[in-house]
Amino acid sequence: MRKYLLRRAAFGLSTLIGVSLIIFVVLRILPGDPLVAMFGLEGFAKLAPDDRARIMEDLGLSDPLPVQYARWMHDITTGSLGRSFFRGEKVSEIILHRGPLSAEIGLLAVLISWLVGLPVGIISAFRPNSLSDNVARSLSILFLAIPGFWLGMLIVLATLFWFNYKTPLVVVHLWQDPWANLQLIVGPAIVLGLGQGAYIARMARSCLLEVIREDYVRTARAKGLKEALVVMRHALPNALLPVITLSGILMGFVLGGSVAVEQAFGVPGLGRALVVAVIERDTIVVQNLVMLYAVIFVFINVAVDLSYAWLDPRIRYR
């Protein structure tokens, strides 16, 4: 098991190094100039070439690329993650301030996806082609097809026009005001959770359909076990492995989707900070936030791999 763990950790680390190189290079070759955001249209137009060069030097963007990359890696190891070009704020502070909100959204979305997806998948699998199965499948296809940000905008508009409601305008942490915090996270979490719940439902249904035809399920029924026990004790644990794998992958989609959904709901989380940083061409913030998302994604995948090995001993010994 230790060998397996080390192998997965090494694989995760090499993935992260690759990701960091890609992020770094892409952000440097993309056209665009942070000075437009910094000086505004009029100010940017009036910048003399000398001044532009000097300011780019001050921002550290004139150094050779290997130097810039090494500086970034150093910042990551020290945990400071560098500072925003514009207001000089530490990226680590941005993450600490906004990260909890995005983390709550992600976790709640995963919870919702399981709470919605699993029961729907079970009902569909045990009553295939019934009315409830057809309704469940139609709904899951609907939620798969609807883009999260669009659904988010509809919810925002509906709550605005019908209930004259708008979420709080600033970050409110769970420990500061749980009710205001819940108002901030519940919308994006529902939208993201329903989308991912549709995947979970479909995967759970197909896995369960396979498993319930297995001999041991038939034996369990033949023993006279109640249907609920057959499902919960015999069928579901064996059908869950692919669902867990899928949840890990979906967590990545939740992270990616939260960028657009946070924007649609106007929630001041990390996703929104990333969008603003991209617009402002705040390279340091963008590269660190994208890297953070990559780290989380890789970490979840390694964790899923490990849980897989834990759930299925055959994997450990391969």
């Binding site: 910094m38 000086f39 249209l41 100010g43 070009f85 207001r87």
Partner: peptide, 12 residues
């Protein structure tokens, strides 16, 4: 939010 805090240097 402003990209920096120098009103004189700003154009937005």
């Amino acid at each position: 939010a402003p990209a920096h805090f120098d009103v004189h240097q700003s154009g937005t």
